[in-house]
């Protein structure tokens, strides 16, 4: 059961590559693997916490104001997370900068709150938060690895190939778009081949 959930979150319903949610922070933060890892884990924390709380209060939130309420819940956790990061991990704060507060508007959080946590039990919402966060982190790691290697010849801030002049555009915005497009294209191609066989 857990294995299927993990497969769902990471492969069949991957938030970035299949559901196309949370593309903005993906483009911005995938410049290096450490950034991607930090952002992925931070988002997973917020996603899990907000899924839990929303699943608990789903009975009491009136339908007409549910979106502001969900946003407030995720904003609360993002603020708490931000304060903790500023206090105990200032380097990560410097590297991710404004993208930590921007987790609030990451479509994954509101998307999963709306589509899943507000309609499912606590334990299922909790699992969903974990596997979606995991899927987000995994795809961020893939994108960051490609961009960091091609764009600055590094992985985890360590040099990889001596004397290789990196393609700087990959560490910048154009590279972000190209990488996401390419990886999404490959994933989509593999899916269509799989469906054609089935």
């Amino acid at each position: 059961m857990l294995k299927e959930e993990v497969k769902r979150g990471v492969i069949t319903e991957n938030p970035i590559l299949i559901l196309a949610l949370g593309l903005c922070p993906s483009l911005a933060v995938s410049t290096s693997v450490t950034n991607g890892l930090g952002m992925g884990l931070a988002t997973m924390f917020v996603l899990v916490c907000s899924n839990i709380i929303i699943s608990i209060i789903k009975g009491w939130v009136p339908d007409k104001v549910r979106i502001p309420c969900f946003i407030m819940v995720s904003a609360a956790f993002v603020s708490i997370l931000h304060l903790f990061i500023k206090a105990y991990m200032p380097l990560l704060d410097q590297r991710l900068g404004i993208f930590i507060p921007l987790i609030t508007v990451n479509c994954i959080i509101l998307g999963r709150a709306e589509a899943f946590a507000s309609k499912n039990s606590l334990s299922r919402s909790f699992t969903d938060g974990i596997v979606m966060g995991l899927g987000f982190t995994v795809s961020l790691l893939i994108l960051s690895a490609i961009r960091e290697f091609l764009g600055s010849n590094k992985l985890f801030d360590l040099m990889v190939i001596p004397k290789f002049q990196p393609l700087t555009a990959f560490a910048l915005a154009p590279g972000g778009f190209f990488t996401i497009a390419f990886v999404m294209g490959v994933v989509s191609f593999l899916r269509s081949r799989k469906e054609a066989r089935a």
Binding site: Q165, T168, A169
Partner: peptide, 10 residues
């Protein structure tokens, strides 16, 4: 344009 973006100096 791609090469200009990636290797402006060269």
């Amino acid at each position: 344009a791609f090469l200009m973006a990636n290797y402006p100096a060269e």
